[in-house]
Nucleic acid binder design. Structure first.
Length: 303
DNA sequence: CGGTTTTGACCGGCGC
DNA sequence: GCGCCGGTCAAAACCG
């Protein structure tokens, strides 16, 4: 397949990458973020990287490349990321351990309860008020990581897990634990490479990150600009710091949202950068979504 | 004991 | 209308 691996040692700050984050992969899908802008985007790809030792996210555009001819690509274009890889024998986290310790009577009792529940559920469950709410902007990236749920500075509660069609890996659904904050994220393993985790964010945090920056950040220079935004997360902080470092070394050719690539300029073409930036701007113009939590606002403004 | 995870059921959208 | 599928709900289990 056409994914391109970026060696971790090419990333600034890579020395703090933990073992379970091994490398970075381009994102294969286009998200609803790009809705309305797809034509100009083509099948833009994002390159994501994370440094979990210090809660770092970077997002890089890469020049469009030929898509793998996948029968499900259409669906991906129309909505979002999709797992469609043939099953691989990697065990999912689906478990049934809860019933292991039950004796027969307990099982019976539980079963009876369940039957009762089933009988009454249909009657009692109130109909959902289903007014169509506007879709939140979505944003996703891929990370090569051994762990599924990656630290991003916010606290999340898992509210669901579903098997993904044609994929051996389940998709997990998380909601931000902050009250009245309805940001959600989905996490699933890539069907194309089980070592790759696809994370999709939806919505906008309305609160500061509850997780304080880790010690590795605290030394960040004050002029890095993080503290100027009350909603800055550790993610933004580290992003911004690295970004500034690289602005200095690469000049102010902004549009790329990532930085820290030494000798990987081929990955970030001007075209890719511009496309990516345009998409970001248009997405943000429509809705100040989660992107702002990930992408420093200054980067969006700049031309 | 409170917060989180697990997991089967439910619901709505969509294609046929 | 029906079935499939993705997303969500919510009770129970789990855990620190």
């Amino acid at each position: 397949m056409g994914t391109r691996e970026v060696k971790i040692e090419n990333v600034v700050g890579s020395s703090t990458f933990p073992d379970h984050v091994q490398s970075i992969y381009p994102l294969q899908g286009v998200l609803e973020l790009c809705e309305g802008d797809k034509s100009s985007l083509g099948f833009m790809e994002l390159l994501g990287m994370q440094e979990f030792g210090s809660s770092l996210f970077d997002i890089l555009p890469v020049p469009s490349r030929a898509q793998e001819s996948n029968p499900l690509d259409k669906k991906m274009e129309s909505s979002e990321l999709l797992n469609n890889q043939p099953a691989t024998p990697i065990s999912s986290s689906i478990s049934s351990a809860s019933s292991e310790a039950l004796n027969e009577e307990q099982v019976k009792a539980r079963d009876n309860e369940e039957i009762e529940q089933q009988k009454t559920k249909k009657e009692l469950k109130p109909k959902k008020t289903n007014q169509k709410r506007p879709k939140e902007p979505k944003f996703a990236f891929m990370t090569k990581s051994e762990v599924d749920h990656l630290e991003d500075g916010y606290r999340w509660r898992k509210y669901g897990q579903k098997a993904v069609k044609n994929s051996p890996f389940p998709r997990s659904y998380y909601r931000c634990t902050a009250s009245s904050c309805n940001v959600k994220k989905r996490i699933e393993r890539s069907f194309t490479d089980p070592s790759v985790v696809v994370t999709t964010y939806e919505g906008q945090h309305i609160h500061p990150s509850p997780v304080m920056p880790r010690p590795s950040f605290i030394g960040a220079p004050p002029e890095s600009g993080f503290s100027t935004t009350p909603f800055a997360t550790p993610v933004q902080r580290s992003n911004f710091s690295l970004y500034q470092q690289h602005q200095q070394s690469y000049g102010n050719s902004l549009p790329h949202l990532g930085f820290g690539y030494n000798g990987t300029s081929s990955i970030v073409s001007s075209l890719g950068e511009r496309r990516f930036c345009n998409a970001l701007r248009s997405a943000l113009a429509k809705d100040n979504g989660l992107l702002q939590d990930i992408v420093p606002s200054r980067m969006i403004k700049e031309e």
